[in-house]
């Protein structure tokens, strides 16, 4: 319950933060919402010698539409997403997922950037961002770079972030008209990490067929999974039961669950299929203007 000692830094700018990260290398950890890092430190599973607290860096808490993208700054909290009009209007998928992350206290602190940067396949936003084809703006001592979400997750708890880099912004393309998304999550109890989570985003064409689809899977493999074959199978198809069933099966085939405290592997795989079908069904319904 008592973390190991560390030296605390509260840089006033991103540049200072990056400077500290460069100086201390692997010894340093970024602290934002703290809900991944602090529990690990309390259990003494993590013992960084330096904590770089970015919470007081100004200008990182923006959430805005710009240039065809939704741009979410590093310090935007889950509760901000929950309360955002643009999220509610254009990203029901994000809203679904956010509401199911932990609990109100945690959502007041936890950030979307931290949820991604932790590289935890059990976190919800990775799958959501895979479904939405997000890009991540990363800044480090070598400057700024933009990494597609598909290249971000490297291994369990490992991302494309170098030790002197900060995930500065999440950039999500604004979906075209007639789009919808949904997140389905099975939990052992409310607020828990997912047994299985499925994020689905679809755009329909004028005829009501699926123009494009994005599907991300939570906690069914060592990394967050983008169900590409399932996505591809949907393109150009009418969103009928047979189409969704097939996509569900392909998503299940793409999953790599293991048996753990949450559930056995066979159940998880079956639930990837079922939740994919349900998420797609609701995404389509939302794209059609329903709920």
């Amino acid at each position: 319950m008592i973390p190991p000692s560390f030296e605390y830094h509260a840089p006033g700018s991103l540049a200072d933060a990056i400077g500290l990260l460069k100086q201390h290398g692997d010894e340093a950890k970024i602290l934002s919402g703290g809900h991944s890092l602090v529990p690990l430190m309390k259990m003494r599973f993590a013992a960084p010698a330096h904590i770089v607290d970015i919470n007081d860096i100004p200008g990182l808490d923006y959430l805005k539409e710009e240039g065809g993208h939704l741009r979410i700054g590093a310090l935007v909290r889950e509760a901000d997403l929950e309360a955002s009009a643009v999220i509610a209007a254009k990203f029901p998928l994000i809203l679904d997922a956010t509401k199911l992350i932990a609990d109100p206290q945690v959502r007041n602190r936890a950030t979307i950037a931290g949820n991604l940067a932790h590289g935890d396949p059990a976190n919800d936003h990775p799958a959501v961002m895979l479904a939405l084809d997000a890009e991540l703006v990363i800044e480090g001592s070598g400057g700024e770079r933009v990494v597609p979400i598909t290249k971000f997750f490297v291994d369990t708890f490992e991302t494309a972030l170098a030790s002197d880099e900060v995930l500065k912004e999440v950039r999500i393309p604004i979906p075209p008209a007639k789009s919808g998304g949904a997140y389905f999550k099975l939990e052992r109890r409310v607020g828990d990490f997912a047994i299985v989570g499925v994020a689905a985003q679809v755009s329909l064409d004028g005829a009501g067929n699926i123009q494009s689809a994005g599907i991300g899977l939570t906690n069914v493999g060592p990394m967050p999974i983008k169900a590409e074959a399932a996505e591809a199978s949907l393109a150009g198809k009418a969103p009928n039961d047979a189409t969704l069933q097939q996509a569900g099966q392909l998503a299940a085939d793409a999953s790599k669950p293991v048996t753990d405290n949450r559930a056995p592997e066979d159940y998880k795989r079956a639930m990837v299929k079922e939740l994919t079908i349900r998420a797609l069904r609701r995404a389509v319904s939302r794209a059609e203007g329903g709920n």
Partner: peptide, 25 residues
């Protein structure tokens, strides 16, 4: 493990778990 909420307080008007925030923050 930051699960139970018994330590909930308000920080600048928002509820947080005071077991998951350093006092210096």
């Amino acid at each position: 493990t930051s699960n139970c909420g018994a330590c909930t307080v308000m920080l600048d008007g928002k509820i947080i778990k005071s077991c998951t925030l350093f006092a210096v923050q």
